[in-house]
Design a protein around this nucleic acid. Structure first.
Lengths: 214, 214
DNA sequence: GCCAGGTTGTGAATTTTTTCACAAACTTAC
DNA sequence: GTAAGTTTGTGAAAAAATTCACAACCTGGC
């Protein structure tokens, strides 16, 4: 197991982006890439790319850049994606939940959905993207029984906190929350939020300051 | 039009969160809130809350905190949400696109979907959540004609860059991208990316460093 | 009016993150 | 083998964001 240095949260995010970009480059037949190229593709600076990678070791070759194949082996190792599958529970099989279920990239990135829950009896039992929707009542027990590590919350805002509590009770240590509420969870549980309104509102801020500031 | 100070990007995001939390508090019958309470609810520090707000003025009362009604008027003004609707085009009516269309919070937050596009002829003409899906061929012209300001990209990765180009050609100045690619756009166009894989991978990093570090 | 209690707004200090800038290292061409 | 041309990795500097800490202020009670 690698001993990770302290890297900015945004840095971890960028590692994912590097990985994605590397696949694209490989698809184009490239075998080396410089920090400058990578930076250009992702609108970063080359120093930033080099710094991010240097937290974990020395992977480049002066005068050549980074070997794509090598980086594509190393970054998943850093991100904890190597030689394992993370077991995920999806809670909520509405529009968003179904969209997430249908997402193909899931599995190839190292995540397997091991359970899908819904509270609505009419949805329970249905099969969505190969997964049978289960009764949310036993959530915590099922999550524990199947040794699920990550929970995805795709339920309405009012239900989200309760779902969060149950996921935590089931032993989950990381949660990706799509509900537009701010959840409370114990400190050992890592929470990430994805919120459409927040994103749109930040675009709004940007657009309206275009007119305001000069 | 307010002249905005330079506030960290993350600060803008937090303003949205404050707004959401204020609605919740108001629903509970509160009329004042202190920076400490707001911070607790959102896992921030009280200094951060005060700092974020102080970029735009002095809204609090010593000894009392912030008047909720007042903040709920002021934050939308800061975010450029007051007395206007932003006109949005959604491109891609697949699973994710449909989920976005169904999202009710949209309109009440000040965003109206004025067009939905899809390339697939089988989807064109269908009505999803009250919106007729239109042929993506004329995207740029329609976007310009309807004076659309914001584009949401919910198409597969391979198609995203082309959609982006057309949105920009149609005059859009802000884009919310859900496709897992890094898009190139001119500097006057504000891009925000929402990427499921990136989020999950950062959870993976966190989870695996739990075991590694100590 | 005065005091006790509570909270803001913000300089200053601190911490975090990014960028600069360059020696060292590697490659390619001849 | 050498020279010219690239590109890395990283100290050091700079910039950005957060946190500290406290004077000033407001409220409510008496």
């Amino acid at each position: 197991m690698p001993r990770h240095p302290r890297i900015p949260d945004a840095g971890v995010t960028r590692l994912s982006l590097y990985l994605r970009e590397l696949s694209r480059l490989e698809g184009e037949g490239a075998s080396f890439v410089s920090s400058a190229e990578l930076a250009r593709a992702l609108t970063l600076t080359s120093a930033q790319v080099r710094r991010d990678l240097s937290y974990f070791g020395q992977f480049g070759t002066s005068g050549r850049g980074y070997e794509i194949r090598r980086l594509k082996r190393i970054i998943p190792r850093i991100l904890g994606l190597e030689g394992r599958m993370w077991r995920v529970a999806l809670v909520g099989s509405g529009n968003l939940g179904s969209a997430l279920l249908a997402y193909r990239g899931f599995r190839e990135r190292g995540f397997v959905i091991k359970a899908v829950f819904d509270k609505d009896p009419r949805k329970v039992g249905r099969v969505v993207a190969g997964q049978r929707v289960e009764e949310a009542g036993w959530l915590a027990d099922v999550v524990r029984g199947r040794r699920i590590q990550i929970g995805i919350i795709a339920v309405p805002a009012v239900a989200a906190q309760e779902v969060c509590r149950r996921l935590v009770r089931g032993g989950v240590r990381a949660i990706l929350n799509f509900a537009p509420v701010s959840l409370a969870a114990p400190p050992h549980v890592k929470l990430r939020n994805v919120d459409l309104s927040v994103e749109l509102e930040s675009l709004s801020y940007y657009l309206s300051s275009l007119n305001a500031n000069r």
